[in-house]
Design a protein around this nucleic acid. Structure first.
Lengths: 198, 198
DNA sequence: CGGCGTTTTGAGAGAGCTCAACATCGGTGG
DNA sequence: CCACCGATGTTGAGCTCTCTCAAAACGCCG
């Protein structure tokens, strides 16, 4: 779900791009909130530093993601946002976004819908992590992400990316896929997986 | 964050209670959406049945939770909601809620804030699950849930409940806590944990 | 006191992680 | 066209850590 699908056009135009060098902070805990961000390139880590000085990762946002939504409803940020890889982000200023929502109920509703869907997706991924077995976890992913035809699961990135999303090492994912395939439960094609359990 | 904290009073009054027997379905995939639900008692499982007939758990909502938020923005439900234990739920009718949001931007904003905070919390819990080590995972939980004083972590339910939330067996959690305590990193008190890393 | 659920500790096994080696694919440049 | 290179994909072997099963101590409440 891209910003282009739900954010009103003139708000999209209000986006302010910013290029971050590796290691640079986008914002720090306690900073006044500027708005919500879209990542165009790279990764941004949301981290909090605990009492003993260690970094606690709250979230890693990647290209295409929206993050810091809660900043709209808080005067200050509650964590640091740092990029290790370097990144390009686009800021949608808080005042303009909130003003739009206040005067355009349709826009507000569209945003609520995006948030609600994100929650659904996150809850499902969290439930997935309750499954220990690599094979069963992969099966859960396939069942949840199957297309409307009930048989094909599109694969977006690399298998290594998928392994990270599933919370598995890439080796474990390869073995699980190989096992499912050799048992005839799936068929692997380029950029998609075909379910064979009828 | 209870419904009482953000839902307008007259909408709270519009809530319709419903008692579900064990095994009873609240709604099924494809049903017309009625609204959002609050759980007063028991648990409700959101499940999807895959092509081979197995149930795929998408989420387990417990007492106090709000669920099916996305129903507000969809004509039909996208999964089944079933209770195994029996449950009491309260329905806030879709039409009334949406109508309120359209005419009361403050209410809409409050709902967006609730959704945004839920997303933050879910992302953080998901990141937590990326940590393999029981001890480190517990440390992550403590760091994220530390109070404003930076030293005490309140414990809501039993340790068994906490173990489930952390995705650990209760034995693993006990051992991790015992290890942290014996190393002087934490001090265990009744219903709270004191961090000692200065 | 007796019963039940939580908390705690012990021992063993299994599954995924780690480390390692190799194959494969796509792009680059000579 | 082919050699090279890096990243992805794949398979193997051993190890560690959590899970599982088991048993006992503890606290709470009727």
């Amino acid at each position: 779900m891209s910003v282009r699908d739900w954010l009103p056009t003139h708000l999209q135009a209000a986006g302010i791009d910013r290029v971050l060098a590796p290691g640079q902070a986008l914002f720090r805990l306690g900073d006044r909130t500027a708005g919500i961000y879209e990542i165009l390139r790279g990764q941004v880590h949301m981290v909090r530093v605990d009492a003993s000085g260690r970094e606690v990762i709250l979230h890693v946002a990647a290209a295409g993601d929206i993050f810091a939504e809660a900043a709209l409803f808080s005067p200050t940020y509650h964590c640091d946002a740092i990029t290790r890889t370097g990144a390009t982000v686009r800021l949608y200023p808080k005042a303009k976004v909130l003003d739009e929502f206040r005067h355009n109920p349709q826009a507000a509703e569209a945003f609520m819908a995006v948030l609600a869907r994100e929650i659904m997706s996150l809850r499902s991924r969290l439930e997935q992590r309750n499954i220990r077995s690599a094979r069963e976890r992969v099966a859960h992913f396939l069942a949840v992400n199957v297309g409307t035809d009930g048989r094909t699961v599109p694969l977006r990135g690399t298998l290594k990316d998928l392994a990270a999303e599933l919370g598995l090492t890439h080796e474990a994912l390869y073995r699980a896929l190989a096992g499912l395939a050799s048992d005839g439960e799936i068929k692997r094609l380029k950029n998609k997986i075909l379910l064979r359990n009828s």
